[in-house]
């Protein structure tokens, strides 16, 4: 180890012995990080409005229906984001596109009206950003919530039976009753009916779609990788597309 920092010992010690000076330095470091990671993003994105969808010009995003907003609250209250993400990575980063999780990467306008924004961090279950496109059927969602092993054998998703009510069939079976079979089917004379929370949650899941092309996330042409992956200094070919793909077949 060589000698360095030949500032006289005494002056160095003096500065670091003054509590207020240490505090000031820490304050400055904190303020810089706050400016860079809180203030600037807030200035850049905090007043975002609805954006237009090129090339036709429709408005995006559409606000969620009331039931879907209640469902978003159920999603939050039960911590679904601890196992599911809602962010699709761009092509070239991971296999999100190849798995059919999204036609294009997720961008800020997708979450404009959401509070909270539940992006998720771990994929114990599949990404849900476009689950409304992949699985629009409410009955499948309800079955999956009641007994995940029926729709996804081997899944580690817990059953959410408390979102449902098992009750005696009065008169004729309710049209809302789940069509269960096997071990999870109720005993004869009983039916399983979703509670309002379950219906709201399913409405929210059905509203999850982020497949419209935006300026920040145009639909890439098939076969061409956008951006830098595998290319050198050339920017990607700007050939216009006129027919955005309406979703891909899901790869399970």
């Amino acid at each position: 180890m060589f000698r360095v920092l030949s500032v006289p010992d005494k002056s160095r010690r003096a500065i670091m012995n003054q509590g207020p000076l240490v505090f000031l330095g820490v304050y400055l470091a904190m303020a810089l990080s706050w400016l860079g990671m809180v203030f600037v993003p807030e200035m850049q994105l905090g007043r975002m409005q609805e954006t237009t969808v090129p090339p036709a010009g429709g408005r995006y995003p559409a606000p969620r229906s009331g039931l879907a907003q209640e469902g978003r609250d159920v999603y939050r209250a039960n911590g679904c984001y601890y196992c599911h993400t809602q962010q699709v990575r761009a092509r070239g980063f991971g296999a999100d596109f190849e798995r059919g999780w999204g036609a294009r990467h997720s961008v800020a306008p997708d979450f404009l009206y959401d509070r909270p924004v539940m992006l998720g961090n771990v994929r114990v279950g599949p990404d849900l950003a476009n689950i409304g496109v992949r699985q629009p059927n409410a009955a499948t969602h309800l079955l999956h919530l009641y007994d995940p092993q029926m729709t996804a054998p081997g899944s580690t998703m817990p059953p959410y039976r408390f979102l449902f009510e098992k009750r005696k069939i009065s008169g004729s079976p309710s049209p809302e009753a789940l069509k269960l079979s096997g071990e999870s089917a109720p005993e004869p004379g009983f039916e399983v009916v979703p509670k309002p929370d379950a219906l709201a949650l399913v409405a929210y899941l059905q509203s999850l779609r982020a497949d419209l092309p935006l300026f920040e996330a145009p639909l890439p042409l098939p076969g061409k990788k956008p951006g830098g992956a595998g290319t050198t200094n050339q920017p990607p070919d700007g050939t216009p597309t006129t027919n955005p793909a309406s979703g891909t077949t899901p790869v399970k």
Binding site: V26, M30, V38, E42, P109, L112, Y113, L119
Partner: peptide
């Protein structure tokens, strides 16, 4: 010193008066 500032910022801008859109997630991650 550091904790009150990050905690107050996060609570104000994410929980009490949420910022628009994905800024909430950025501040929460920070």
């Amino acid at each position: 010193f550091w904790f009150p500032w990050i905690f107050t910022t996060a609570e104000m801008l994410v929980v009490y008066f949420p910022s628009r859109g994905v800024v909430q997630a950025v501040i929460a991650g920070w």
